[in-house]
């Protein structure tokens, strides 16, 4: 059975971290309306939704709802939330070089990718398409400089892909990406807590 207590625990902690990051930065955004803070917050809000939807997807499998029906339907919100989260994460770093309208491209991709996955009924395809986005993200993140914080952003991206990969039926190494994800969220949250007293 794929649905286990550790999965529930991981999801609760991951979603809590994402929402905590979102709410901890709320006042800063409300005071400044600074776009970079907005994209950063939105990234973690959508990551929270994505991790929650991933758990729902595991539930669907655990209760053996026919895969041909429920699984692809739940792929749609999972794909949208995760793709837009990944987009906002990278965009929060590079938004100054692009117009506000670029956000529409992010939403376009966030709709297109899950629709393709839905039509093919494959979360592996969603994973592959998001991995392609990783190539673009790598160029955007590191084209100016390589810093620790940019490496942290990259880790959030890669660890999401690994966590999504572990939705698959034959994947037995969930513990490592999940532990690393929580570690990265802890680092990010503690850095935020330092400034948001």
């Amino acid at each position: 059975m794929l649905f286990t207590f550790p999965e529930l625990l991981f999801t609760v902690i991951a979603v809590s971290f994402c929402l905590a990051i979102y709410y901890r930065t709320k006042e800063s955004y409300e005071l400044t309306k600074y776009p970079g803070i907005k994209y950063f917050r939105d990234a973690f809000l959508f990551f929270g939704f994505a991790y929650a939807m991933r758990f729902v997807l595991l539930l669907v499998r655990a209760f053996e709802v026919p895969r041909s029906l429920a699984f692809p339907i739940f792929l749609l919100p999972l794909g949208y939330f995760s793709t837009i989260a990944l987009f906002y994460l990278v965009f929060s770093l590079v938004w100054k070089h692009f117009s506000q309208r670029t956000v529409l491209i992010g939403h376009g991709l966030a709709v297109l990718l899950p629709v393709i996955s839905f039509l093919t009924r494959s979360h592996e395809l969603l994973l592959s398409l998001q991995a392609l986005l990783l190539v673009v993200a790598l160029v955007l993140i590191f084209r100016e400089k390589v810093t620790r914080i940019r490496m942290l952003y990259l880790l959030v991206f890669v660890l999401w892909l690994l966590t999504l990969l572990s939705v698959g039926p034959r994947w037995g190494m969930r513990f490592i990406p999940q532990t690393l994800s929580l570690l990265v969220f802890t680092v990010i949250y503690s850095k935020i807590a330092k400034w948001m007293k």
């Binding site: 800063s28 005071l31 400044t32 600074y34 994209y39 914080i149 940019r150 400034w195 948001m196 007293k197």
Partner: peptide, 22 residues
């Protein structure tokens, strides 16, 4: 009060923006 709050938080917010390269 909101203006005072901005002044009080400004340095922290700039620190946050710089650290996360936002």
């Amino acid at each position: 009060d909101k203006g005072f709050s901005y002044l009080e938080k400004y340095k922290l917010i700039i620190g946050f923006i710089n650290e996360f390269e936002l």
